[in-house]
Amino acid sequence: MTTIDEPTSSPNGPTVDAAQWREIRAAAGGDGEAFGRLVQGHQQVIADYMWRFTRNRGEWEELVQDVFVEAYFSLKSFRGRAPLTHWLKKIATRVGYRHWKRRKQQRAEGNVPIQSWDAAAPAAPDVIEVQQAGAAVHAVLAKLAPRDRLVLTLFYLEGCAVGEIARLTGWSQTMVKVQAFRARNRLKKLLAEAEGER
């Protein structure tokens, strides 16, 4: 078994403080209470992130739980090269993407509800509610294939740059650029079709 006595240092300095590292070590050694504290400290960040993957409350809670269960069983491989949140988000990306792939058959039917945008976006761009905007964007992205949806979700909703998307998905940067270009074209086509169907 690999021992994890000290976090691996990063060129930018320590990414995990000593107290958190002790908690991580204890949790990796099977201390449920230490892991519970780590979950409590990070669950809202992960819950916000998983909200990008589903807006169904039951599924969302299950996805958040899955992220932490996977994290627990992989905790021994955490070296502290990046903050724990980054590492958890990488697992969360995998869990969310897998969820979309599983539900590929149930991709949202019907037209993109662009009519509702007219009421809110052009006339009063900053008045639209955040939740309303989130729901509208989610409804559009739900019509795309999982790969397109993932890259656009990370790009538009998480505001990630190419390098960050590559880190979260495990794809190369070239692959991310190609995927983003194609996904954006498919999004444009989808929106044009919805405009034509009005």
Binding site: F35, G36, Q65, F68, V130, A133, A136, H138, A194
Partner: peptide, 28 residues
Amino acid sequence: NRLEQFEHLARRARDEQAPALDVSRRVL
């Protein structure tokens, strides 16, 4: 255009937060 509208909505949606959640017991 529609793509710009979408991008505008997406920028707005970045600030969206999920409801409060406590899964620690379930995870344990």
